[in-house]
């Protein structure tokens, strides 16, 4: 069996010479921009990102229980901080890759005015928002309602979605007349693409910081470090901005 060590050596050298794969866990709300960034990243560096999209809470449980992800793009800044503190993330590797914006949105034209006055006027039975216990976007929605002084009045009309995609679904199906979603979900060419909406001024809520972190499995993996660096580059920034996030 002299060929076996040779074969192994061949495999090792070829994979080292060629580009690497990198396993990335991505917050579901960042799906569309990340697919674009990943394609560019692969073209520019030769490294191949394998993307998994899902909820940050589930990724946390999976990472703590041995999931093979090397990089996490979270939907918040708390989960990466927690992972770092618990030793599952590499200390000092955290950074904010996107800052989310929320929109008060209706699937119908002319329902939501561009100042959000509808919150005070009412005239709707359901207000959809992501569950603030699970999603930072939901927390921002609650803060916005409090800033407008209508939180307590409207609370009975809340319909809590498990995530942003479900909030969008509740509204687009007409079951909730209005609701809060991410700007990234409704933006098209820099404007709200369909229905009517009010882009909530950033000053009405705490910034929705989405942080990335290098995970323990990505330690000393060049492709993982390269991806994190790439997210901060001009090309990635332009894509992130075009999808309605700030950087």
């Amino acid at each position: 069996m002299k060929t076996l060590p040779l074969l192994l050596a061949f495999l090792v050298t070829t994979s080292a010479a060629h580009a690497d794969e990198v396993q990335v866990a991505v917050a579901a709300n960042f799906t569309a921009p990340m697919q674009k960034i990943a394609a560019d990243f692969e073209k520019d560096t030769g490294h191949k990102p394998l993307l998994a999209f899902g909820s940050t809470g589930k990724f946390y449980a999976q990472i703590r229980n041995g999931a093979p992800y090397e990089v996490l793009l979270a939907a918040d800044d708390e989960t990466p901080a927690k992972l770092e503190k618990e030793g599952a993330g590499i200390a000092g590797s955290r950074s904010t890759y996107a800052i989310g914006r929320i929109v008060l949105w209706s699937a119908k034209l002319g329902v939501v005015d561009d100042k959000g006055e509808i919150l005070k006027k009412g005239g709707f039975a359901h207000l959809a928002l992501p569950n603030p216990r699970l999603a930072p976007y939901g927390v921002a929605a609650i803060e916005t309602l409090k800033a407008a002084g209508v939180h307590d009045v409207l609370q009975a009309k809340f319909v809590l979605a498990e995530n942003l995609a479900q909030a969008y679904q509740f509204i687009v199906s007409g079951n909730a007349e209005v609701g809060f979603v991410a700007l990234a979900q409704v933006i098209k060419d820099g404007k709200i693409g369909s229905g009517s909406g009010w882009i909530v001024p950033a000053g009405l809520h705490q910034p929705i910081r989405q942080d990335a972190i290098l995970l323990d499995k990505g330690r000393s993996r060049p492709a993982a470090a390269a991806l994190l660096a790439y997210l901060k580059g001009e090309k990635a920034r332009a894509i992130i901005k075009a999808y309605g996030y700030e950087h």
Binding site: S55, G57, K58, Y60, A61, T79, K82, N131, R133, L134, E162
Partner: peptide
């Protein structure tokens, strides 16, 4: 249960 798990 789902809410508790997702909220860690």
């Amino acid at each position: 249960i789902y809410n508790h798990v997702e909220a860690l």
